[in-house]
């Protein structure tokens, strides 16, 4: 029933989409991470900044990512003003629309994870740093951030895996990454089970590598027990 030649051929075709899956994941996770840090810090401020971040998190966590992708891809391109602006060379391309939507989405989840990490930094550590005469910036960079990162790492690892899975949605706006190619092969051959097996194996391998990597970093950052 299972046809090895078909499986190897399918895996070969699907691997052609791997570079796109990887670059979508990497760029949106990096950009989303930077944005998330900024949001987490703004959330600690009082007043309008904190309110903005709360609204942002509410909107991006409360609605489906696919709606966000469609809104950015089809919704924004409706406006002639935007089509004549400097942003259009980017937003014209499905690739950058997908990156933008993925980054904005992960920033909402990641900012909450980072916020949790920041809250978990013991106040005694901060006071100790202050007593050493560290400037606020150095205090943040040398003490608060490393401790918060260590605290947040397991949850952030999960978020990275979720993001890699989410890049599959880019196929809906015409990008031929792994899932897009898988859909095309299913459409041509109707052998959905075998194609699922192959594509699933690629994603699982990728995600277990990521989980392993996060675990290694976690171990490095942990104090010796």
């Amino acid at each position: 029933m299972i046809d090895p030649a078909f499986l190897t051929d399918t895996i070969g075709q699907l691997l052609g989409g791997l570079p796109l899956t990887l670059s979508l994941s990497a760029i949106s996770i990096l950009a989303g991470g930077v944005l998330a840090l900024a949001l987490a810090l703004l959330r600690r401020s009082s007043g309008i900044g904190s309110l903005f971040v709360r609204a942002y998190v509410f909107v991006f966590r409360g609605s489906p990512l696919l709606v966000q992708i469609f809104l950015i891809y089809y919704g924004l391109s409706q406006f002639p003003a935007l089509r004549h602006s400097v942003l259009w060379p980017f937003l014209r391309q499905p690739y950058w629309c997908a990156v933008l939507a993925l980054a904005l989405n992960t920033a909402a989840y990641a900012s909450e994870i980072i916020r949790g990490g920041l809250i978990a930094v013991p106040s005694g550590m901060i006071e100790a740093g202050r007593a050493l005469g560290l400037s606020p910036f150095r205090l943040f960079r040398l003490i608060v951030l490393p401790l918060a990162v260590r605290q947040a790492l397991p949850a952030y690892g999960n978020e990275i895996v979720i993001m890699v899975k989410s890049t599959a949605l880019a196929s809906i706006i015409t990008l031929m990454e792994i899932t897009g190619i898988a859909h095309q092969i299913i459409g041509d051959t109707f052998r959905s089970f075998e194609v699922f097996l192959c594509a699933g194996a690629i994603y699982l391998a990728l995600n277990s590598l990521i989980a392993r990597g996060v675990w290694l970093i976690e171990r490095r950052l942990s104090p010796i027990v």
Partner: peptide, 22 residues
Amino acid sequence: TTVLRGVPDLLVIYLFYFGGSQ
């Protein structure tokens, strides 16, 4: 649990939609 949490949900939907009929 390992497979379902490591594979894109869209792929699972394709599996059920096309594979279910199969």
